[in-house]
């Protein structure tokens, strides 16, 4: 899946925080190309700048130097062609599930009948067909994240950026949602940038796994995952990838503790 044209080009991006914009480097010279329809997972120790990288691609923050190009055009701010799924769901609490999912469509001025069809389709896709009229406060964490995924998909962005989307969920819900996301991706074919702490999650979902160094974040190593589309977490090849990536990540985690 990594052979398509470049969708996202992260061009020598550096980011430093602090009052002078220099004192606290978070990312250093990150160079990265994500192909159209590719599922790229980014792994790294806490505080390595993975979320910073995602926020820059989303257009929420500006890089100190370098640029992000989407289809060759520089990113200047957030936009509808780059959907975002956050760890804390960030649903609009005053809107129903359906109201949340159709939010982007309302902004685009899509007619009500078509909105209803799209909402129904994506709620069905994430298994929430029966919950359209509920409010976010009435949902479990897993259900909220399904709504957030449906909201991103219904807006039909070419790119979806996911910032540890399953990080706040319990282990069972997490695996179920990984399976659903993998199934959805086989239907929707988005270009996905997915941040995670979980190596198993990365190997399960990704076409490529990118491991970052401890802070300040750089790209340490890229692992193409050559496994079938539908993956078996207990296959020997799966475990091999897992242990190879684990070794790489551990080196970086160890540095944090030195």
């Amino acid at each position: 899946m990594t052979s398509g044209p470049t969708k996202i080009h992260v061009q020598r991006v550096s980011k430093a925080f602090g009052a002078d914009g220099r004192s606290a480097p978070a990312l250093v010279d990150v160079e990265l190309e994500v192909a159209e329809r590719e599922f790229l997972c980014i792994l790294g120790p806490s505080g390595c700048g993975k979320s910073t990288l995602l926020n820059i691609v989303a257009g929420f923050i500006q890089p100190t130097s370098g640029a992000v190009l989407v289809d060759g055009a520089p990113v200047r701010g957030p936009g509808a062609e780059r959907g975002v799924v956050f760890q804390e769901y960030v649903l609009f609490p005053w809107l129903t599930v359906a109201g949340n999912v159709e939010f982007g469509l309302v902004l685009k001025g899509v007619a009500a009948a078509e909105r209803r069809r799209t909402v129904a389709r994506y709620l069905e896709l994430v298994g929430l067909g029966a919950h359209a009229e509920k409010f976010p406060v009435q949902l479990s964490g897993g259900m909220k994240q399904r709504v957030a995924i449906a909201r991103a998909l219904a807006n039909n962005p070419a790119i979806i950026l996911m910032d540890e989307p399953f990080g706040a969920l319990d282990a069972q819900t997490r695996e179920v949602l990984q399976e659903e996301l993998s199934r959805i991706q086989r239907v929707e074919h988005k270009t996905i940038l997915f941040i995670t702490h979980s190596i198993r999650e990365a190997v399960y979902l990704a076409d490529r796994v990118l491991v970052m160094t401890s802070a300040p974040g750089r790209i340490k190593q890229v692992f193409p995952i050559k496994l079938p589309e539908v993956r078996d977490r207990f296959a020997p090849e799966f475990t091999e990838y897992e242990s190879a990536i684990t070794r790489t990540v551990k080196e970086e985690v160890a540095k944090v503790h030195e």
Binding site: A58, P78, P93
Partner: peptide, 21 residues
């Protein structure tokens, strides 16, 4: 941020996010 990445303009943000929130 969530609204902006769904395509909200500044006016949309005021009307559809800031006021209801």
């Amino acid at each position: 941020r969530a609204a902006a990445s769904l395509g909200a303009s500044r006016a949309d943000l005021i009307r559809r996010v800031i006021l209801p929130a």
